[in-house]
Design a protein around this nucleic acid. Structure first.
Lengths: 157, 157
DNA sequence: GTCTATAAATGGATAGAC
DNA sequence: GTCTATCCATTTATAGAC
């Protein structure tokens, strides 16, 4: 709360005129993040690979800009004592995966939901090296693998 | 501290006879975890693929047992205000990656350090779905990809 | 709508009895 | 070596002045 207040030039107490609690911020920040990533994607029906490429690129871009994935940060930060925040995190990743799966399905990729979950996991995992070493290379590799989706059979599932 | 004290049947204050501070626990728990994972591996020189398979299996097993990766949890939990803990996390993942790379090098895998970093990232990323949904499937896929390392050229880097 | 002041609770850590 | 008691800093949140 203090860090956020500093960023926006307010006292920490003043944040409570905008948000009812600290926990409520989780849902808000994830909703904004999801919007940033999903807004105005190319129509998968006419260009599913363009939509896929744009979406993957945006996800990677937020990781590079922020030096982390806030969603994963929160996934490991929320506990059973903050059920609302925990649910917000779960919904965030489920929505992102479903958006990815929807694009893959349009591209007639085999098992789109599973491939979407795996692809998102690979992008998330690459943030390990960003947060610990500042190394972006594993993320770039994950992006390359993601963009090769469906390139040849036998890779899937 | 309270959770840990409950687990070991002590009062939180009594933990300070065993550890000098909360922050010091980070290094301890990661050292124990690294030992668990690296102890008594098959000798890569005689059976590098057996060593690789054992190591990957152990990493995945700790994720399944604990429902998360404590290292990644801590990676997203430590800040610039806890430099010792931050360094411990960095060292933990670097050691794990180097152990993996050493095995791959014995197996004459192309760019072993890069492949090790990518493989570890993929395993870590799969914990996203364990922590949020309890879904182990992406982890199993990550393990399968890891065990296929070096299967054919053109996958690497 | 933001501030100061302050409440209330939490959590890290120490002192000293046993 | 663990306990109770306590300290102290931080942090979440509210009350009320401006």
């Amino acid at each position: 709360m203090r860090d956020l207040a500093d960023r926006v030039g307010l006292r920490p107490q003043s944040l409570y005129t905008r948000f009812p609690s600290k926990e409520s911020l989780v849902r808000e920040v994830l909703a904004l993040t999801l919007d940033d990533v999903l807004v105005d994607l190319p129509d998968p029906a006419t260009d599913w690979r363009g939509a896929w490429q744009t979406l993957i690129g945006r996800i990677a871009e937020t990781f590079e800009t922020r030096g982390r994935c806030v969603g994963l940060h929160l996934a490991y930060g929320v506990t059973a004592q903050t059920p609302d925040a925990r649910d917000a995190v779960r919904v965030f990743f489920a929505r992102l995966r479903d958006a990815m799966a929807g694009i893959l399905k349009t591209g007639t990729i085999f098992e789109p939901a599973s491939v979407a979950a795996d692809t998102l996991a690979q992008l998330e995992g690459a943030t390990l090296w960003i947060t610990t070493e500042g190394d972006m290379e594993p993320l770039r590799h994950a992006v390359e693998r993601a963009l090769r989706v469906g390139e040849r059979e036998g890779r899937a599932a």
